[in-house]
Design a protein around this nucleic acid. Structure first.
Length: 109
DNA sequence: AGTCTGACTGGAG
DNA sequence: TCTCCAGCCAGAC
């Protein structure tokens, strides 16, 4: 994935996230060989809404498993609802059993 | 080329 | 478990 833009790489990887699983910005950055560019991943996701095909941005959380992006989903509970609909339990804006639901692109891709 | 910014991160208190 | 802080990187101006 070096022949395309950084953003496109991010979107492509995010689209690989299995339903019912989540990952972190840092994990994605590292998987793309840009360890430390976690902030950039988040910045790229901010534009995910305009990208086609759609990107399951709600499956990308910060390293603590918190829904740090919920504010960008229109309604504050939208992101949580999407995740719970896929089987991911949320408690106080945080994924329950984050370590278990966590999807590591470096391990499983 | 310089400066600012952000859906982040890991460590310290 | 929570808050604060400095370090990070690519893109927009």
């Amino acid at each position: 994935m070096e022949d395309i833009n950084f953003y496109e790489s991010v979107y492509a990887l995010v689209r690989e996230i299995p339903v019912g699983r989540v990952t972190s910005y840092g994990a994605i950055a590292k998987a793309l060989g840009r360890d430390g560019a976690a902030r950039m991943v988040g910045y790229a996701m901010a534009n995910a809404g305009n990208v086609r095909p759609s990107v399951p941005a709600h499956r990308v959380l910060n390293s603590k498993g918190e829904l740090s992006a919920k504010a960008a989903f229109g309604h504050p509970n939208r992101m949580q609802e999407l995740l719970e609909k896929e089987g991911v339990k949320i408690k106080k804006d945080r994924v329950v059993d984050f370590k278990t639901v966590f999807w590591n692109p470096l391990d499983e891709l």
